[in-house]
Nucleic acid binder design. Structure first.
Lengths: 150, 150
DNA sequence: GGATTAAAGTTTCAAATGAAACTACTTTTT
DNA sequence: AAAAAGTAGTTTCATTTGAAACTTTAATCC
């Protein structure tokens, strides 16, 4: 019954499509962040996280931002240099430091958020609220499954 | 009316979610291809394309595989070395070469396709046919929109 | 038809990446 | 309480990446 498949149609292969889509989006946003704020994607993620979770440590950021500790170390270094972050060595454990946005960091965040939201809104402009919910649901399920397969 | 948004919840930000998802999937597949066939993702894409479109040139592959010409040049070089590809200089234009899978290349492709299909099937295992169609539709629309915004 | 411009693919070079080693500390073991 | 094992974050080093320059061939211009 089942004929062996002799070829695979790349444009319909889900991993390819996701990589292509996320690549287009990331490049587009990275260019914007970089040009307007001299910020990398890793830096942007950290700033966004610290906006709602001040005082996180590098280790805590890693899983929340899907970044490895090397990337975090380098991004934090740059954010400190640009005075957008402040580092407070933890009293209880002097290997770690709690990270906080400075006033400048908060300003940066406040400036980027509308841009990021606007970009997301444009991506979803032609999606109805029901479709957005459906997409959300699909992404959650794919994420969980990819995690399980990983 | 509209309150200025002071933070952005990263785990629900579409670009972040797509990057994370595609990263998990790509890493997982890249590890498989690399371990089992000593093939990179770029090489895999080229082999897959030539399976259904024998005789493509590097320039033609670029948009179909979403690869830049440097990546293609390097991937083709490796595929030639591993005897999975054959290169025939075009009669009409000696700068270009038509690329073909060798018998070995076809064997590789025949071996990988079921793995790739199986991985995709697992990702979508809990999706109904209607949901798969819906997802397909969403991805097409996001792709077109990202392209337009890009 | 020789000079100019353009295109295909390769190479070079500098920047980004990430695994592994390292440093500085902390916790656990005995 | 000293030794051993473990953890947070940094640095090193080798690999990957991609933009720009380059080489070769083709097309266009005058």
């Amino acid at each position: 019954m089942n004929e062996m498949q002799r070829s695979l149609y790349l444009p319909r292969f889900l991993p390819y499509r996701l990589t292509k889509l996320s690549g287009m989006i990331s490049r587009s946003l990275a260019a914007k962040y970089s040009k307007m704020f001299d910020l990398t994607i890793a830096e942007w993620r950290i700033v966004a996280l610290l906006g709602s979770n001040p005082g996180l440590t590098a280790r805590e950021i890693a899983p929340l931002a899907s970044l490895d500790k090397v990337s975090i170390s380098r991004a934090v270094e740059r954010l400190l240099k640009s005075d957008r972050l402040e580092k407070r060595i933890l009293e209880g454990d002097r290997r770690s430091a709690a990270l906080y946005l400075t006033a400048a960091g908060q300003t940066t965040l406040a400036e980027i958020i509308p841009l990021a939201q606007e970009y997301e809104n444009q991506l979803l402009a032609e999606f109805s609220p029901e479709e957005i919910e459906q997409l959300d649901n699909f992404l959650n399920r794919l994420d969980a499954k990819a995690d399980a397969l990983g």
